[in-house]
């Protein structure tokens, strides 16, 4: 390690990362801050939109919020108090904003529970599933791309396998997996979310098709990188093909794949519904479907805002990953930012 970096570490851990990345004037921190700022703007817009849609929806707000629950004067009074419906509209909006900011998404009158608690408790299994599916996808994509890129026969086989995986609906893949591994081989539980082994099959069902899509992009990127002049230079050092692929070319190939993965993971959250149903797992997907079917508006609004949050978080993450992966982008945006 060179002396510059060791002094940076001694200074403070926060200053270490930007220095390590070659950013002396807080460039990266500034760029990340700008991206988070624009993300917050999007979130604010999502919250405002949900408030406006509530106002514009046909019918009385109270009955919208109650949903299919029986309407009694007591319930109506509670709702009016909670949403401040007697106050003027701007005040209603401000109190709505402040409640959201405090993490209070109101109450579901159908389920007779706080929306925040409900959504959070259901989010955990979904996040677990999504994360596991992402791991499956990335392992599959990297393994398939690295081992087959630029090799004619293996790449044809992998291509065919990926096409099959992409074109198989995840619920069908789930049913197949269940049939083979749960009913026949009895290796994994059929349903539920009690143990880690219960996560394996749904993660495979959800992650494999994702991995197949990402794998194709990754392989294409790898093949392009392997054709670059620098690959010849690296080979001329006596580097093995595997090291060339993993240490050098994979990073080049990762740039387009990261964008795609971020977008697909955002989709996973909503796409998880079907997989959750097939495997009888709790999760956000099921809650959403039930809330939509039961006109449980407070839950629907909370999920809408949450999914906006997820997309904003993912796209910010993708942007930051880009900066970490490609040093040229850091300098470029620093120059234009100057």
């Amino acid at each position: 390690m060179d002396p510059q970096n060791t002094t940076a570490i001694r200074r403070s851990p926060a200053a270490w990362l930007p220095e390590r990345l070659g950013l002396k004037r807080g460039g990266l921190a500034l760029q990340i801050a700008a991206r988070i700022g624009s993300g917050l703007l999007v979130l604010w817009a999502a919250v405002t939109l949900s408030f406006v849609s509530l106002q514009l929806a046909p019918g009385d707000i109270v009955s919208l919020l109650i949903g299919e629950q029986l309407r009694t004067p007591e319930v109506e009074a509670t709702i009016r108090a909670e949403w401040g419906l007697d106050a003027p509209l701007p005040l209603q909006y401000l109190s709505y904003l402040s409640r959201i900011l405090h993490g209070d998404f109101g109450r579901s009158y159908i389920l007779q529970t706080d929306v925040t608690g409900l959504v959070l408790s259901q989010m955990l299994p979904t996040l677990k599933l999504t994360a596991a599916a992402l791991v499956v996808a990335l392992v599959f994509a990297v393994a398939s791309a690295v081992s087959t890129a630029g090799r004619r026969v293996p790449r044809a086989i992998a291509g065919a396998l990926e096409l099959t995986l992409v074109s198989t609906p995840s619920f069908w893949l789930g049913i197949l997996l269940l049939f083979v591994f749960s009913f026949t081989l009895k290796l994994f539980p059929v349903s539920g979310d009690r143990s880690f082994s219960a996560l394996v099959l749904p993660a495979l069902a959800l992650g494999l098709s994702l991995g197949a899509v990402v794998g194709q992009v990754l392989r294409e990127g790898l093949e392009r990188a392997l054709e670059e002049p620098f690959a010849l230079t690296v080979r001329s050092w006596g580097t093995s093909d595997l090291v060339l692929r993993l240490r050098h070319c994979l990073r080049h190939a990762a740039l387009p794949a990261v964008t795609l993965t971020g977008w697909l993971v955002g989709n996973l959250l909503s796409g998880a519904v079907i997989t959750e149903s097939v495997f009888g797992r709790p999760g956000l997907g099921r809650v959403t479907v039930e809330a939509v079917l039961g006109h449980d508006l407070p839950v629907v609004l909370a999920v809408a805002i949450l999914s906006a949050f997820v997309y904003v978080a993912l796209s910010t993450l993708v942007d930051v990953l880009y900066l970490l992966l490609d040093p040229r982008l850091r300098d470029e945006s620093r120059e234009t930012g100057r």
Partner: peptide, 13 residues
């Protein structure tokens, strides 16, 4: 082995 144009002949990342 040295190639021409180090901008692309060295790994830019």
């Amino acid at each position: 082995f040295v190639l021409q144009d180090a901008l692309v002949s060295l790994d830019p990342l």
